[in-house]
Amino acid sequence: MALLKPMLLASLLTALPVLAQETVPAGAAALPPAEWDPPALQPFVATYQAFYKGKEAGDATMRVVHDDGARWRVDMAVRGRRGFAGVLGLNLEQSTVFDNEGSVYVPLSQSTVKKALFLGRKVTGTYDWREGTAQWQGDLKKERQRPIPLQRGDQSALLLNLSLMRDARPGQPLRYRYVDVGRVRQYEYQAAAGTETVQVGDLSYDALRVYRTNGGNDETIMWIANGVPTPVRILQREDGEDAIDLRLTEYQGA
């Protein structure tokens, strides 16, 4: 059952701590922040090829939907189709409803559903900004079902990815407070000084690398490209070796 945890973290994308040193790879171009044009929030459907330790394990779909006015929703689904994940019939879905307030994305509700051959799990959460608390219920330990005091700027796991795409600027640090599935964590990120060429399948992108910097022996790295509303690649490394690797295969406006 060891693969369940990495695939779950792949759906969360940003849930692992990262320890990485800033370097500018050969061929990378230093880029003034004023010349970086961050991708705008827009509806899209993106498909990723999922690898685990270098071997194809399945696929993932990220979707952003504009409901009405300031209301949006971001969904992520991970499907195990090969190897151990395929045998287990692993299927993972997450969703966050949020308001776009321009400088901040405000989470309103969150859900996680995990399905596999011999187990299932469902968790739902509500961010109640009037009461100033967030709370989850479902298949969780009791201590993680307690109300959590909210602070402006708090992010769910999925929403954090959209915020990173909006906020990242070459060479700039970023800080967020993560509140999801009954847990609170502080995340600090760093954007590379310049863009670099990222090869994904038959396509190459001029992309900005963004990575977390505060703690742990694992790394989670995201590459963002101008004009692409979703990350072109998301890589989780464990003890210096590639673990989960999501590579964009196609995207289109929703």
Results as ranks from 00 to 15, higher is better:
Gln135Trp: 04
Ala30Asp: 13
Tyr178Ile: 02
Asp167Ser: 02
Gly120Pro: 05
Gln110Leu: 11
Trp129Lys: 03
Gly89Ile: 09
Pro43Thr: 02
Leu88Gln: 05
Glu93Tyr: 12
Tyr176His: 07
Val200Glu: 09
Val106Cys: 06
Ala191Val: 07
Val106Arg: 15
Leu246Asp: 13
Thr61Phe: 02
Lys53Glu: 13
Gln155His: 07
Ala60Ile: 06
Thr124Arg: 02
Tyr48Phe: 14
Gly215Met: 10
Gln49Trp: 00
Leu8Asp: 15
Ala134Asp: 04
Ala225Trp: 06
Gly89Cys: 11
Glu35Arg: 09
Pro170Val: 03
Val64Gly: 00
Leu19Cys: 08
Leu246Ala: 07
Asp206Val: 03
Arg73Tyr: 01
Pro107Ala: 08
Gly216Met: 09
Ala168His: 10
Phe84Glu: 09
Ala116Asp: 11
Leu88His: 04
Gln135Met: 13
Leu248Ser: 02
Asn226Arg: 15
Val123Phe: 08
Asp139Gln: 13
Glu93Ser: 07
Gly102Leu: 08
Arg81Ser: 14
Asn217His: 10
Arg185Cys: 03
Ala60Val: 08
Gly227Cys: 13
Asp218Gly: 12
Ala254Tyr: 06
Gly80Lys: 04
Ala168Tyr: 11
Leu12Trp: 01
Ala29Val: 15
Thr213Asn: 02
Gln190Ser: 01
Leu88Ser: 07
Gln135Ala: 11
Arg146Thr: 12
Tyr48Asp: 15
Pro170Gly: 03
Arg185Pro: 05
Glu101Val: 00
Gly240Asp: 14
Tyr251Glu: 10
Ala168Lys: 00
Gly125Ser: 14
Gln151Ile: 00
Met62Val: 07
Leu203Tyr: 09
Val78Arg: 03
Thr249Met: 13
Leu8Arg: 15
Asp167Tyr: 03
Leu159Lys: 01
Leu164Ala: 01
Leu9Thr: 10
Leu3Ser: 10
Glu196Asp: 06
Gln49Asn: 06
Leu150Ser: 00
Glu93Leu: 11
Asp242His: 03
Arg209His: 11
Glu143Ile: 08
Thr220Asn: 04
Ala134Arg: 01
Gly240Val: 14
Gly215Ala: 06
Leu208Pro: 12
Val78Ile: 11
Lys142Met: 09
Leu140Asn: 10
Arg212Thr: 05
Arg144Pro: 08
Pro32Thr: 09
Arg175Gly: 10
Val87Gly: 09
Gln137Lys: 13
Trp36Gln: 01
Gln94Thr: 12
Thr249Ile: 11
Asp99Asn: 10
Val78Glu: 07
Thr230Asn: 08
Asp239Pro: 00
Asp37Gly: 02
Gly80Thr: 07
Thr249Leu: 09
Pro33Ala: 02
Ala10Lys: 00
Phe44Gln: 00
Tyr205Asn: 13
His66Glu: 15
Gln137Met: 02
Gly125Cys: 08
Thr124Val: 12
Pro43Ile: 10
Ala26Pro: 04
Asn226His: 02
Arg152Ile: 06
Leu117Val: 09
Asp68Lys: 12
Ala30Leu: 14
Glu131Met: 03
Val210Ser: 14
Gly216Trp: 09
